[in-house]
C-alpha cells in the first residue's frame, strides 16, 4: 500500500494556481523530499494532504483514504509539523503532551519526554518564552510523539542547529526503517541529498522532476579540474566533447563532465596531466536548474 497517492491534483486560489495537475506517489518506508522555490506549491500540496484545503480538481489519498472527506480518520496515523510552527503561548512541552494525549486518546507522555530529552528541550518552558528553534523542537515532538505511519514535515530543520538536525535525521531514518513514510519539504539541498530516497521538484505549481536520488546522482554532472604539466613545450590538447569548459587558464581547466568517468580517465591517461580531481555528482546544480 502506498502512503500518499496524489492524482491530477489542482488547487486554485481564485484566479491564481497553487498546484496544477500534480501526480505523485510516496511508498511506505520512503523518505520523500519535496522541493521547489518559494511559491512553487509545496505548502499548498501539504495543506491538501492534511485536509486543510479542498482540491479544485483531482485529489489526494493517504493510506488509500480521501484526504478531504476522511481527513480526521487519516490524521490518526499522520504527524505534521508546519513550516512556521505557531503554538498556544500557554503550552509547555509537558502540558502539550498531556493535552495532545487527551485529544488523540493515546498516552504520548513517555515517548514525548524521550524526544524532548533527545532534542534537549526543557519540558517546563512555556511557548511564550521559547525561541523559534525551541518552538520548532516542540512542534517536532508533537508530530512524532504518537509514532505516526506518515510524517509530513514542512521545512523541519529550518531553525535547528546542526547537532539537532543530525538528531532529527537519525530519528527520521529510524521511522522510515520501521516502515513509516516521511514526506518533507526543504530548501536545504545537502539535507535532501543525505536523507531522501526520492524527490519531487515543483516549479510554478507543476511537477518538473520526480525520481530517485540515485537516478538524479547519475544524471548530475561532476566537476573536473585538470592541471597540466608545467612544461613550456607542452600545449594543452583540444577540449574533448565530454567536457564542458567552465574556466580555463593558468595551466588549469575546470569543466563539467558530461559522460561517465571511465571515458575521462581513458582520455586523461594519454595526456600530460600533473593533477586531476573529480568532484561528487553536483546535485545542487541539478536542483538549481529547476529552481531558475
Amino acid at each position: 500500500m502506498t502512503a500518499i497517492a496524489i492524482q491530477n491534483l489542482t488547487k486554485c486560489y481564485g484566479r491564481s494556481v497553487g498546484v496544477e495537475n500534480l501526480d505523485l506517489t510516496v511508498a511506505k518506508g520512503c523518505i520523500y523530499g519535496f522541493l521547489g522555490p518559494n511559491g512553487a506549491g509545496k505548502t499548498t500540496t501539504i495543506r491538501v494532504l492534511l485536509g486543510l484545503l479542498r482540491p479544485t480538481s483531482g485529489g489526494a489519498r493517504i493510506f488509500d483514504r480521501n484526504c478531504w472527506s476522511a481527513s480526521h480518520v487519516i490524521k490518526t496515523d499522520v504527524g505534521y509539523m508546519p513550516g512556521d510552527v505557531r503554538l498556544y503561548p500557554w503550552l509547555c512541552c509537558r502540558n502539550a503532551l498531556s493535552l495532545f494525549s487527551a485529544i488523540r486518546r493515546l498516552d504520548l507522555k513517555a515517548y514525548g519526554m524521550e524526544l524532548a530529552e533527545a532534542f534537549g528541550l526543557d519540558p517546563a518552558v512555556r511557548v511564550r518564552d521559547m525561541s523559534r528553534g525551541m518552538r520548532q523542537k516542540l512542534g517536532l515532538i508533537l508530530a512524532l510523539a504518537h509514532r505516526p505511519k506518515l510524517l509530513v514535515l514542512d521545512e523541519p530543520t529550518a531553525s535547528l542547529d546542526p547537532l539537532m538536525q543530525q538528531t532529527l535525521h537519525s530519528l527520521l531514518r529510524e521511522f522510515a526503517s520501521e516502515g513509516s513514510a516521511v514526506f518533507l519539504s526543504s530548501h536545504t539541498l545537502s539535507e535532501v541529498d543525505q536523507l531522501c530516497d526520492r524527490v519531487a521538484i515543483l516549479r510554478r505549481g507543476r511537477l518538473v522532476e520526480e525520481s530517485s536520488l540515485d537516478d538524479l546522482r547519475k544524471r548530475a554532472r561532476r566537476i573536473v579540474t585538470i592541471r597540466w604539466s608545467d612544461s613550456s613545450d607542452t600545449q594543452p590538447p583540444e577540449v574533448p566533447s565530454f567536457l564542458e569548459m567552465l574556466e580555463r587558464g593558468d595551466g588549469r581547466w575546470t569543466a563539467a563532465l558530461t559522460s561517465p568517468v571511465p571515458e575521462l580517465l581513458r582520455w586523461v591517461s594519454k595526456q600530460k596531466v600533473e593533477d586531476l580531481s573529480i568532484s561528487e555528482p553536483d546535485l545542487g546544480r541539478v536542483f538549481q536548474t529547476y529552481y531558475e
Partner: peptide, 17 residues
C-alpha cells in the same frame, strides 16, 4: 489569525467535532 489553526486542524478530530 494567530496561526495555530495548522496544529489544531491537523489533529484527528473532524471540524464538526
Amino acid at each position: 489569525d494567530r496561526g495555530t489553526a495548522d496544529v489544531l486542524f491537523a489533529l484527528p478530530v473532524s471540524r464538526l467535532g
